[in-house]
Design a protein around this nucleic acid. Structure first.
Lengths: 112, 112
DNA sequence: ATCGTTCATCGTCGAATAGCGATGAACGGG
DNA sequence: CCCGTTCATCGCTATTCGACGATGAACGAT
């Protein structure tokens, strides 16, 4: 045990866990194909199968990867329905990011 | 001039320019340090100089790069004030992303 | 039992990110 | 005129991303 207390490594000062969260959500949306997928799931309420591949116009493996990223971020969920997988939006997951942006917009408008 | 009309390369089917826009904004926010910077500029209304470097806790060159990315996305602006640069938030730039998220949230809540 | 469909995973490639230190430009002040 | 401060830019390295084709797993249908 050292005699002096070393300065805490600090979680990077100004980078609380909440920001980490927001950044992860934003990153997950940080690709046009993924925005398109969310848009699709948002319009066609119904969950979708491989139609996404046709709509977006990328290779199946690529779409699968994008779906994996969205799933990992909690933005979508997939339930198997052999032989397909039925994806649907989990709108609640986006709340932290949405609230962050709302907050910025509101305060900015408020002080004009 | 070929006799037949070739199929248009298509802007990637379902990936309209608007989504591209949203994705670019999201990408710019896709890093905790950048979220922190926006948060800073949002709280301390006043524009900031190099205080950001102290607050975030990354090397000056790294912060400079993050600022460049935010600037490129139109999210912040910087006005020189020798020898410093005064950054401030351009909240309006985030609107497309904010509206997108609001839309998703609203429609999701509506159909419950 | 075989086939077809749907999807995930793997390996690979090039491009982009993220981080740093070092260097350089641009002043305002002594 | 030199100095210090602030910031941008330049290499450079390591890691991650994005895309693809090929392969494989998991069934329903024939």
């Amino acid at each position: 045990m050292p005699a002096v207390k070393l300065r805490e490594p600090a979680p990077l000062a100004r980078v609380p866990a909440e920001n980490e969260d927001i950044a992860l959500l934003a990153k997950a949306l940080g690709h046009p194909a993924r925005v398109g997928i969310v848009q699709m799931l948002h319009e066609k309420q119904s969950c979708i199968g491989c139609d996404i591949v046709d709509e977006i116009g990328l290779a199946q493996s690529t779409i699968s990867e994008h779906l994996r990223i969205l799933k990992a971020a909690g933005i979508i969920t997939g339930s198997i329905e052999r032989p397909r997988v039925c994806y649907s939006l989990n709108a609640g997951a986006l709340e932290p990011l949405r609230r962050f942006l709302d907050d910025v917009a509101k305060r900015a408008a408020h002080r004009q």
